[in-house]
Amino acid sequence: MKFEGPAASFVDEIIICENVHKWFDEFEALRGVDLRVKPGEVIVILGPSGSGKSTFIRCINRLEEHQEGRIIVDGIELSHDIRNIQEIRREVGMVFQQFNLFPHLTVLENITLAPINVRKWTRDHAEEVAMQWLTRVGIPEQANKYPGQLSGGQQQRVAMARTLTMQPKVLMFDEPTSALDPEMIKEVLDVMRDLAHSGYTILAVTHEMGFAREVANRVIFMDAGKIVEENTPDEFFNNPKEERTKLFLSQILHH
């Protein structure tokens, strides 16, 4: 099967976040986050719950609005201009914890809707690419079913195919395995590994330490709305610098 990798990018740093602050009313969820991501990097964001890691990646495609600082994606700065926001959303794919498939559309319709209407592809082209992706995530035979007829793991793989058919430059995973039964986690992680190895820029919020250890270029540890430690996976897991990181690792690894 002929397969195209991620779309080429012509910038040095595909995501630039500078001093990002975000408040939910009185509560400060992000307290100055800085991050620079090069094309092709795989970054795993770890942290205890409530540390702002999901909020942070949701700011990057403006599902949440940040109040201070700058976010620049593929050379476009996020502003109130709806066109900028939509341009960025086209280039940034997102996979959600709860899949968020459209229950009234078939799997194939779920996947081709955005390419046809946003990328303005023809239906035939969109369906061809969609089928390629469905084959790659291993469920081409489910194309004409409705999401409600699939298992959780299959649904999440459809959600990934839906995101990938848009040919985004950046992939963001928001705890993609947290809502899955244990035996289905592997099938989703396999796809994520595959993508990481084929050159996608990936930002993943996940609790899968194995995935982080194995494929991440960098691991970022967040706590209380700040990046506490930024390290290679080896150093991070074997030789963490910060006390907070050590505490977190001891809590998740020892039981």
């Binding site: 709860q98 809707l113 209407n117």
Partner: peptide
Amino acid sequence: VGQYEASDSLGLNGFQKMRFI
């Protein structure tokens, strides 16, 4: 709310989001 977020994250505009999703 996930349906709105999924539509947004795919780059659908407001009209398309309402019309199709």
